[in-house]
Structure formats: structure tokens, C-alpha cells
Simulated assay, not measured.
Amino acid sequence: MSTKGLTGAPRQVIFGPVRDGGRVDVVARRISRAIGLGLITDGEQLPSESVLAESLKVSTVTLREALSSLRDQGLLETRRGRGGGSFVRTPLEPSAARMRGLLGELCPHELREIGDHHVAVSGAAAKLAAERAGAEQCAALGKLVGHLATARTIGERRRADARFHVGIAAAAQSHRLTRDEITLQGEVGELLWLPVYGQDPDLVSAVEQHSGILVAIEGGDGELARARAEAHVDLGITRLINVRRRLG
């Protein structure tokens, strides 16, 4: 098995040539981000080292060091023998303390900058998805809405949320938008589900907003899809900025 759940633009972004000279940390971050966002899921097998190194355009030595780092982080396990290889392990549930620490490293202005970028990317992706997505892609997005609705933990919700947004960018048939969406989800996606004073973000509202975006995409209404996606992302980042200000 070789990342069977990952197809199209997300796969090409994650396993495409690495920039920045193919450094070990860049390769490790690329794969760890995909695992953290649920784009490569628990138990999935990565391509063989030779195939993956060729796909990423890095040396086998660099790849092995990156995979070793991911094993040390508990994100991969190696199985020997027939049918062996590198298999993904779902990350542990993030602690609220760790998430607050990550949020504390970003000032409100930085969050607003990230939010502005995310609004632009998500809005453009939703508009193009409404114009380009076929029935199969819309059905896949519908399943992702369902995954969010039934997600119980912060980690499950974060991954379902991220996969929906990345799925929209993929449905837009744009590698650049898909790459940007994956990067943005890696920067703040986890923080968007940070509980505040014991209360989790409103799951029901998030599901309703995802459903509204999907309805607009299915209906081929690009402007409505854009407006709903932009409003959804802006609500999330505004909440995050307010949480950051409370933390001082």
C-alpha cells in the first residue's frame, strides 16, 4: 500500500520536488505536515525510499535522515521483511498547553497577516472549485463535511477541517493554491481548534459553514462560494486573534 488515500494535487504537492536545496529539515517538515493534517493517514505506507527520493528530487541519504527524524518524533514506524517499509502513525492529541504555547509565539499582527493570506487563498480556491469541480470531487468534499460532523477529538476535528480546505483547493485544480492551503493549514490549522476556558470551538457552526461552502460549489456559484469561504476563514482567524489577546 502506498498512500492510497492521497491523490491529485495534494499528492503532487507533498511528494513533488523539494525547494530550498533539499535540506533534511525541509523534507521532514513537508512529510510531517502532511501527516499532521491527515493528508497521509494512520497506517498508510510511504513509497519506497528510492521512489520517494526520486519524487522529492533529493538524495537517498537526505531522505533517510528525514525519515529517521520522523521516526524519532513518533510519526513513522519501520517494518522489516516482506511487505515492510515506512508506515504512518497518527500524531498524539495536541495538548491545550502546547497549543497555547504555539499561539503565544505569534502576535496579533502576524495572525492578521496569515489570516489575510488565508482568506485570499481559500476564497480563490472556492470560486475556482465552483467553476471546475466535477461530481466526484463534490462527493469527496461531502464526505469530508461528514467526517468533521462526527469528529470527537481536537485532533480529528483539526484533520477533518484541514482536509476539507485542501480538498477545495484540489477541486480548484490549482497546484499553487493547494500548496498554499497546505502551508497555511500547517501554520494555524491546529490553533483554530484551541479550547478557550474549557470550551471547544463551535463544531456545529463549523459544519454548517462547510456545508454552505459545498452547496455553493455544487451549484456552480463561484462568487457565493468565494464569499462563504472568505467569511468562514475570517471568523476563525478573528477568534484566534481574540484568544491571543486574552493570553496577553
Score class of each variant (00 low, 15 high):
residue 68 S to L: 11
residue 98 R to W: 14
residue 149 A to G: 01
residue 54 E to T: 11
residue 135 A to V: 10
residue 89 R to I: 04
residue 137 Q to R: 15
residue 115 G to C: 11
residue 143 K to N: 05
residue 78 T to Y: 15
residue 139 A to N: 13
residue 37 L to I: 07
residue 152 R to H: 10
residue 45 Q to P: 02
residue 96 A to C: 04
residue 61 V to S: 08
residue 82 R to E: 07
residue 63 L to G: 00
residue 51 V to G: 00
residue 118 H to R: 14
residue 158 R to P: 03
residue 136 E to G: 09
residue 83 G to A: 04
residue 59 S to Q: 09
residue 111 L to V: 14
residue 153 T to G: 02
residue 151 A to F: 00
residue 121 V to I: 05
residue 136 E to K: 13
residue 50 S to F: 05
residue 153 T to A: 01
residue 86 S to K: 11
residue 61 V to A: 10
residue 81 G to P: 06
residue 110 E to F: 12
residue 111 L to G: 12
residue 54 E to D: 15
residue 138 C to N: 04
residue 114 I to G: 02
residue 135 A to K: 10
residue 140 A to T: 07
residue 123 G to Y: 00
residue 50 S to V: 05
residue 76 L to R: 09
residue 57 K to T: 08
residue 75 L to S: 10
residue 90 T to R: 12
residue 160 A to F: 07
residue 122 S to F: 02
residue 117 H to L: 15
residue 113 E to P: 11
residue 81 G to E: 03
residue 150 T to W: 09
residue 59 S to R: 07
residue 47 P to I: 03
residue 129 A to Q: 04
residue 46 L to T: 04
residue 96 A to F: 03
residue 75 L to V: 11
residue 125 A to S: 00
residue 141 L to D: 05
residue 158 R to E: 15
residue 121 V to C: 02
residue 108 P to C: 11
residue 68 S to F: 13
residue 83 G to H: 00
residue 55 S to H: 03
residue 117 H to Q: 14
residue 54 E to C: 07
residue 144 L to F: 02
residue 107 C to S: 14
residue 66 A to Y: 03
residue 126 A to S: 01
residue 95 S to W: 09
residue 38 G to N: 03
residue 38 G to H: 00
residue 97 A to F: 08
residue 38 G to T: 00
residue 71 R to G: 00
residue 108 P to K: 12
residue 110 E to A: 14
residue 53 A to C: 07
residue 149 A to Y: 09
residue 135 A to E: 13
residue 130 A to L: 05
residue 143 K to H: 08
residue 80 R to Q: 04
residue 146 G to N: 02
residue 73 Q to P: 03
residue 156 E to L: 08
residue 89 R to H: 07
residue 149 A to V: 02
residue 89 R to Q: 06
residue 70 L to E: 04
residue 69 S to F: 12
residue 42 D to M: 11
residue 85 G to T: 06
residue 147 H to E: 14
residue 136 E to C: 10
residue 132 R to T: 05
residue 88 V to F: 09
